[in-house]
């Protein structure tokens, strides 16, 4: 090594040069991160700022970042122009049903694939994996025809019922998690005479809370934010969801951006809160399954 031949002062000088370089690099990284963070945060701040502006301040140049006065009444106004309360109840019930269906059906299928032996398992699992490749648009049209034949168009059934039949993505994810559970526990329960249903419900499920929380968050988010499905299947205005309400609100009041932004903020909040509350579970679950980011 070169430093062997250095005297004392040379050594400290090179060490100092190295720490200086490290600090410069770290400073550069932090500056870059700040710049990207600004790019990420500015649109959101712009939305929040607009949502609190009086009508005269919305379109002015130069723009006002901190509105004066803060018009909190925008939120109340936006909420009553369109029946958002009804849409919130509709959307919450719909999302809740989808979460229940997704968790139950996918954990059942995942347990079967992860923990039980039966003929044809590998072939069926390959089929499951390959269905992840099929674009949703390919099945959208024939599914619509099917639901129309069943008389389900105009109801929530086409949006909720399929979630009670496991999907490839969540089944795969939960299977990966179930594969990692200790076999001894289940074998012990089997020797004690427990059946597989009991083991699934009393052992596998409680041990998989992080993965199940992740599935719950993603399926909730999917249902809460879905726009295409509700727009396709819901015809009665009383049954509309928040996402349809937002889109309609925009096309009806295109110039009142303070109201549109206020409504948008409120509609986004539940998903943000859920991520914040389940953060620890979620990070663990996402890391183990390691599929989506």
């Amino acid at each position: 090594m070169a430093s062997v031949n250095m005297d004392h002062s040379e050594l400290t000088r090179s060490r100092r040069a190295k720490t200086l370089r490290t600090w410069l690099w770290k400073g550069f990284v932090v500056l870059l991160l700040l710049a990207i963070s600004a790019f990420i945060v500015f649109p959101v701040l712009w939305m929040l700022s607009t949502s609190l502006k009086a009508n005269e301040q919305v379109m002015v140049y130069p723009p006002v970042w901190i509105p004066k006065p803060l018009v909190w009444a925008n939120y109340a106004k936006a909420w009553t122009v369109v029946p958002f309360t009804r849409y919130t109840i509709n959307t919450a019930l719909y999302a809740f049903a989808v979460v229940i269906g997704t968790i139950l059906s996918n954990s059942l299928a995942a347990y079967g694939f992860a923990r039980l032996r039966f003929p044809g398992k590998n072939v069926l699992f390959m089929i499951l994996l390959s269905t992840m490749m099929i674009p949703g648009m390919v099945t959208m049209i024939p599914q619509y025809v099917l639901y129309a034949k069943l008389g389900w168009v105009g109801t929530y059934l086409p949006l909720i019922v399929p979630s009670f039949f496991a999907s490839a993505f969540f089944t795969f994810m939960l299977r990966q998690f179930f594969l990692g559970l200790p076999e001894e526990l289940m074998e012990a329960a089997r020797i004690d005479g427990a059946n597989e249903g009991w083991i699934w419900w009393k052992i596998a499920m409680p041990l998989s809370k992080p993965a199940l929380a992740t599935v719950a968050i993603w399926s909730f988010e999917g249902a809460w934010n879905d726009y295409v499905g509700p727009v396709l299947y819901l015809t009665d205005e009383k049954l509309y969801t928040l996402q349809i309400g937002l889109a309609l609100f925009r096309s009806q009041s295109d110039i009142y951006w303070q109201y549109i932004m206020a409504a948008s903020v409120v509609v986004m909040i539940p998903v943000v809160v859920i991520y914040a509350v389940f953060q620890d579970y979620f990070v663990e679950g996402a890391a183990v399954s390691g599929i989506k980011g």
Partner: peptide, 10 residues
């Protein structure tokens, strides 16, 4: 975390 129609309007 910020998704859905709201982000498009934003």
């Amino acid at each position: 975390i910020l998704t859905g129609v709201a982000v498009i309007l934003l």
